[in-house]
Design a protein around this nucleic acid. Structure first.
Lengths: 225, 225
DNA sequence: GGCGCCGTCCCCCTTTCGGGGGAGCCCATC
DNA sequence: GATGGGCTCCCCCGAAAGGGGGACGGCGCC
């Protein structure tokens, strides 16, 4: 392994920063090189540290994560390398996913995500993958309503959802219950429950309703289809 | 010309229905496939017949055209194709128009319109055009976010929801369970359940997840807030 | 070959939901 | 003053959901 991935953490809550740092530092290939307490500090820190990944909360005093993202994107020309931007959200209170993506974020992450998910996402973003939804993929996802081709791999990497899982999520977003999903997918109810369990875990949510909300908020599905 | 445009008529006055049916049936490319005598019948008929266009009066017994529209929009996910909704009205009363658009109607028609106008409008709506107001206005209409004032009457007429009910729906849309809603609204869990029961009935949906979907699809809430 | 992930299905268990009643209070409209 | 709706709460009950565990074949990767 050559160089570790350099990470800048921005969150107004020191406890959160510490927690994230603790989790991230357990990985050899990840290094937290700096922290910022609000959005306004982000740019100065980025210019100084030139991190690979900036991980920041949407809600921060003085300048929120969206503005800070826009500011970063606007100023990438002044940097040697443009950092990748990962937005942290709690999703219940702040659903700025759309705006964040529009501003130029490369991915977003629920604060409740499991450590392994967190780490995986950071690596993926650093590697250039747009985890959550690059504008293009988002449309693809919205468009491929009837992708019932069994052979088709279905690239959706929403939040690390497998293809089967995102299929189930589609059904959830249509308001179907486990039995209906099972019938339509030709599966046992137990299997559906199993998939849903994985979905809930990966999305970091508690129940199917929250999963559907997450699907809407992330752009996985959109009103009016 | 391949398939005719399938039309469902909803009006409490049989004479009006017959009149409309007579006019519409003169056209080869239009077919009246069913009728409903009030708003409550609309959804069941739509589910059964899956028409291309639903033409309904604003004023109907049991459930008016606005509510019926909202119910339809709320449930489009359960259909193969979402029907287009055309509202019939006697006057150009602004508030109806406003409410109907908010509920998700696609066009308007005055009952005193000439037959050719009538037919033209049906074709246009079926073709996906938003006759009366462009789709954009619909989004503008949906712009009533901050209804956090307890005293505020809250204009939301989404589906005939009372103010308390739409409050609860807001909570649902945030992924909260009954207990959490009860705590935050200072109510007993039973009361919350009672409200939710009413919400489900009025929206014509089965469970909270479908209610949340309805909220998104009707514009009651929107991604990114 | 082993490891890990995926996909399928099974068990048991508790909690949550939602439907069915009903009741009392307030306030409007008729 | 009756009727109706909204809001509050109560009961019981069955169904659905979700967490926990485990099992097994397949596939890809090292």
């Amino acid at each position: 392994m050559s160089e570790p991935i350099r990470i800048l953490l921005a969150d107004d809550e020191p406890l959160i920063r510490s927690g994230l740092a603790a989790i991230l530092s357990l990985e050899e290939d990840l290094a937290v090189v700096g922290e910022a307490g609000d959005g306004a500090e982000v740019w100065t820190q980025v210019r100084k540290l030139e991190p690979d990944v900036v991980m920041m909360d949407v809600r921060m005093p003085r300048m929120d994560g969206i503005e800070a993202t826009a500011q970063l994107v606007a100023n990438t020309g002044r940097l040697n390398r443009a950092p990748r931007i990962l937005i942290l959200t709690t999703f219940e209170s702040d659903d700025y996913v759309y705006d964040a993506l529009k501003a130029g974020a490369d991915g977003f992450l629920l604060k409740r995500a499991r450590p392994d998910e967190l780490v995986r996402t950071v690596r993926a973003v650093a590697a250039g993958e747009s985890i959550v939804f690059p504008a293009k993929l988002r449309e693809l996802v919205a468009d491929r309503q009837d992708s019932r081709q069994p052979g088709q791999p279905d690239l959706v990497a929403t939040a690390g959802l497998s293809s089967r899982e995102s299929e189930v999520l589609q059904h959830l977003a249509h308001g179907r219950n486990n039995q209906e999903i099972a019938q339509q997918m030709f599966l046992g109810v137990e299997t559906v429950k199993s998939h849903i369990g994985s979905i809930l875990a990966k999305l970091g949510v508690r129940d199917r309703t929250q999963a559907v909300i997450a699907a809407y908020e992330s752009g996985f599905i959109r009103p009016g289809k």
